[in-house]
Write a protein that binds this DNA or RNA. Sequence first.
RNA 1: GCCAAAGUAGUUCAGUGGUAGAACAUCCCCUUGGUAAGGGGAAGGUCGAGGGUUCAAUUCCCUCCUUUGGCUCCA
Length: 597
Amino acid sequence: MKQKSLEKIRHSLAHVLALAVKNLYPKAKFGVGPIIENGFYYDIDLGKSLSIESLPKIETEMKKIIKQGLLFKKKELTLKEAKKLFKDLGQSYKVELLKDLEKYGTTDQNEILNIKSKSVKERKKIVIPKTVSVYQTGDFIDLCRGPHIKNTKELPLSFKLIKISGAYWRGKETNSMLQRITGIAFLKEVELKEYLNQIEEAEKRDHRKLGKELELFSFHDEGVGFPFFHPKGMILRNILEDYWKKEHQKSGYQEVKTPILLNKSLWLRSGHWDHYKENMYFTKIDNEDYAIKPMNCPGGMLIYKSSLHSYRDLPLKVGELGLVHRHELSGVLQGLFRVRCFTQDDAHIYMTPEQVKDEIKKVIDLTDKIYKKFGFSYHVELSTKPENSMGSDQIWQKATKSLKEALKEKKIDFIVNKGQGAFYGPKIDFHLKDCLGRTWQCGTIQLDFIMPEKFDLFYIDKQGKRKRPVMLHRTILGSIERFIGILIENYGGEFPLWLAPVQVAVIPIKEKNVSFAKKVFESVQEKDLRAELWSGEDTLSKKIKKAEEQKIPFVLVIGDKEEKSKKVAVRKRKKGDLGAMTITKFCDILLKEIKKQ
RNA sequence: GCCAAAGUAGUUCAGUGGUAGAACAUCCCCUUGGUAAGGGGAAGGUCGAGGGUUCAAUUCCCUCCUUUGGCUCCA
């Protein structure tokens, strides 16, 4: 109930926003103004772009409108009447929406795409509405399903316009760019403040900021979008990769490594040359065209082909931590979340058609297990056949069905993304949340009946005949880089002991304590714990401050007392002094904790 | 790629139409310290790059590069 009224308020605020903009810029043409998580936005064509400075002015105008107590007046019009009304008002975007409604019975782009793919007979079944509703508030009339509040006076002032940006009309790159004004709104002022605080807190966890502070990685103008991993980032990365390798070994995977640079004929054969070219990097060697791999599969298939396979060997699971390069648009790059070269924790599973569903379920299980280790929540999406694709409809349907069935049998809810699959097959994607609530695609399971065909892969069946295997591409972490970014934000840089690049800092108090501190440091290292000896001249307090800032889990303070008693004074991150104990006991506690994690 | 904002020392940031400053970090000296900054000194900047306006540009204008927030795309 509360949610309903909040949605009504946000939606009504979108209309107030539009009216405010109309008052300030009478020539404005309006796109759409839906509600979103925590607020609303309106896409508006002003014939020019706005800067962030204009937001307070619009916000003031909105508050003025709210105080005026304007009514939301609803009217039902026939499609024809509505089209005339918006045409007379000069609102061409609304007219375009009405035309879609008239033709397809919907304005949803996905739905329209779906309808377009249907047969003439099926198209006839579409229900076209006879009338549409419009809402008028002051001078602003909008094509809108509603519902709305009755009077602008009912609206709270606990809203804020927070963003202004460009947005393509109907999300299409080839359309004109409108101005998107985004606002957040809550029922109470306290809730608004709370949300703003939350954003501020989340910004402190930004992996780009922490990555610099904790000396994990960096980016340079000399290679835009290509991350540089520093020593501590490398430790984190290696731990993650070791864990990955261990889990995959346990699940029956083998590991391979394929070259980064391969020649044109391979990419022609795989279809990447025709379907993925704009994302690839190229070079010429001895006058022959080469491409840097944007995916690992073609290389993997050459390995498969290099020997004969029996049905007894299937399913064959081959993993590769493969470095791929993709020339992404400059505007989409974002720290480690979106880069131009990254390492996929890829694997290809070759199997008989009968094994497909079972193998998909096994991959889902492994994915779930690995995400749980880090305490991540995720949601699943299923993407179907895109426009630019290879293979027959029949094959696509079959592949999509197996993915759906596996998900259903695993009782996992999923969203369907029409037309978002890879060019060679449909896919399931796993999306993890970052600290700002944005979700990132990490794991993916892609079914592929096409590559085995292209590469003429086969296995020998019971009867000694050649048979075509089905292939499955999958990642769990997605990209090591992106996953590390999410890990950093998830833990706010306070890694659990097993992941912490430095687990223990050993701090001698005086110079004469250094030699004992060194012995402590060495015995901690001997237990395979990652330690650093801080024998510099700084004061104890200063070193402790630094250890806290570096978010090091444990600090060992070594002074005269410790040297005498042969014990170490233990300090835990964020907890403070834990008192003295023997080195053996300290190491045992840590090793136990690591094992538990 | 598109829309908007930003770019000053290794880092975080002040500042100005008359060629720049702080804090932290670095190096040196003093201090021998008991759980989140002991004191002093030195060094460090073609003010993102190129062009234009001007007697004079880090500051104003243009182009480009990079970063940030979105759009589109994606692991």
